[in-house]
Amino acid sequence: MQLIGYTCSYIPVELLALTGFRPYRLLHGDVDSSKRGEKFVRVDACPMVKSNLDHIFRNQNDFAALVGSTGCDMSRRMLDVAAENTRIPVLVFNNPRTDNRTIFHDEIDWLTQRLERLSRRQFNPASIQNEVTKWESMRVELRTIDERRAANPSQVSTASFHEVMTAYCQGAFDRDVSICRERADRPRVYLLGSAITYESNAILRLIEDHLRIVGDFNCGLSRALDIRIQEPTLAGIEETYYGQPPCVFKRPDRRFIDHVRDETRRLNCTGVVAWTLDYCDAYEFELRKIERTIDLPVLRIRSDFSLQGSSQLRTRIEAFVEMLCSKT
């Protein structure tokens, strides 16, 4: 089955699936592919964007189309670069940064039409309902895993959870994933930052050797779980995707900051792990702000993926744990 690539949590996966192509979230990130991506963009581009470009370029025959959003500048421009370097059709969806329902509504409308044209299919209430039900039931299942992760003590590791979410983001429900149900009494932390990529599992495991991530908010991972479509119609899809907890690029950013604070409280977190990619400036700005306003210790990891597994990273994580323990 051909894939329909997409870049952002604001793009309704149900609409993509209606095309008959498999929705595949572009969430690649590792040292090698990111280096290779420098063929298309400058070194100081987002390392995930570089990885994704490499992935798209090397697998261009797999993709029927790419759907992007204006969510962040680099990911929007990533599709410009993809369009110039491949023959894959590209659709870019206008995702307003401010509270502007009109634009969002019109753009969902546009996206729907374009997807219909692309797939030569007519979406109808029945097919829409069908698709929403399918994805919603998947999310219900994921939420139960997430609840076990959030339980105190936590029952599921985020590394495991990441594997399940990977299946979801790649539209591969049928993939076999093993869930680690190991109960953990380690310090409970919240994970923030730019996208956790498919290749980030190792770093999650490294963190979870000492800590337990019980909740997260970033461009990938559990964001999809905030999508709870009540009414299985186009309007319902629009309503839900528009109203999801705002990403860091929304202005003003108050709702984002509040959301993070509320979640860390709800989950009884004792610390925050903030993982950002190099050159992801907007996230960097917000994280610094969170660090200054939130009442929890923050472990900062900023990298272009190459930090993964380094001894410095291990030292940092261990020192963070020592710090958390000395505080309680």
Partner: peptide
């Protein structure tokens, strides 16, 4: 560090 430079210049 300027995002449009990073993304556009090569093109």
């Amino acid at each position: 560090g300027c995002s449009h430079c990073a993304m556009e210049t090569r093109l």
